[in-house]
Amino acid sequence: MSDALSDAGSDVNQDDAQEDVMTPAELIAKLEEAWLNEKFSPELLENKSEVVECVMEQLSHMDANLQRVKKGDAKASIHRMEIDRIRFVLSSYLRSRLRKIEKFFPHVLEREKSRGEGDPSLLSPEEFAFAKEYYANTETYLKAVALKRMPPNLQTVDMLKAVPEPCLDSFVFLRVKDRQENILVEPETDDQREYVVDLEEGSQHLMRYRTIAPLVSSGAVQLI
C-alpha cells in the first residue's frame, strides 16, 4: 500500500519537469500568489491557466493514486488533507475570478476584444465562454422584463455604460518582492505635491492600485 503512495510522490515530481522547470511546491506557491492577487485587486487580472491546469493535473494524479490505496491508511489521510487544502485555494481563486467577470462583464469582454494579437489573453477559454453567455443572458433578461415594454427609442441599453467599471483608484495593501525605484505617488488634493517613493524588497505599503497595477502583473509586488 505505501508503495503506491511513494510512487505517487516521485511520479508527481517528474511530471512537472515539463516546460519551465518548476517543482510542485513552487507551483502551489504560484497558485497562492495568484489567489491573493486576484482576491485583492479591484480589476480582473490576467488568467493563469497554465498554473491552474498544472495544479489540476497534480490533484487528479494524486487522487488516482489514492484510489488504489486501502481505506484507513495513515499516509493516504495526510495526502487527502493536502489535496483538500490545495483544492480550496484553487476553487477560491476561480470563484473570485468568476465574481469579477459577473461584476464587470461588458468591460472584461471589451478589453478582451481590444487586445492585440500577441498579447496574453485576460480570460481562459472557459471564462470567455462564461462571460459571453452571461452577457447574452443579461441582455435577454433585460429585454424580457423591461425593455420591450419601453418606447422604441429607449429599447437599447449600452452595457458598457450600464455596468460600473472596476475602480482602479482603490487602495490596496502590498508587499514588495523585487525592489522598485521611483514609484510616483499622486497627490490626494490639489494643494499637495506629487512625490516618488522607492519600494524596498520585503517592505509593505498601502497605496492606490492604479500606480502599481503593472507591478502586480509583472509579479514584482504581491497584494496582501
Binding site: 475602480c167 483608484d169 482603490s170 487602495f171 490596496v172 495593501f173 505617488v185 499622486e186 497627490p187 490626494e188 488634493t189 499637495q192 517613493v197 517592505s203 509593505q204 505599503h205 498601502l206 497605496m207 492606490r208 496582501i224
Partner: peptide
C-alpha cells in the same frame, strides 16, 4: 492628513486584515 501612500513594515496579515474592509471602504 489625506495621505496617498503609507509604509506598513512589520504589520502582519491578520492585523492588516482587521482594518482592511473599514479603512479601504472609507478611503474610497
Amino acid at each position: 492628513q489625506l495621505e496617498a501612500h503609507a509604509k506598513l513594515d512589520n504589520l502582519t496579515l491578520m492585523e492588516i486584515n482587521t482594518i482592511r474592509a473599514f479603512l479601504l471602504d472609507s478611503l474610497n
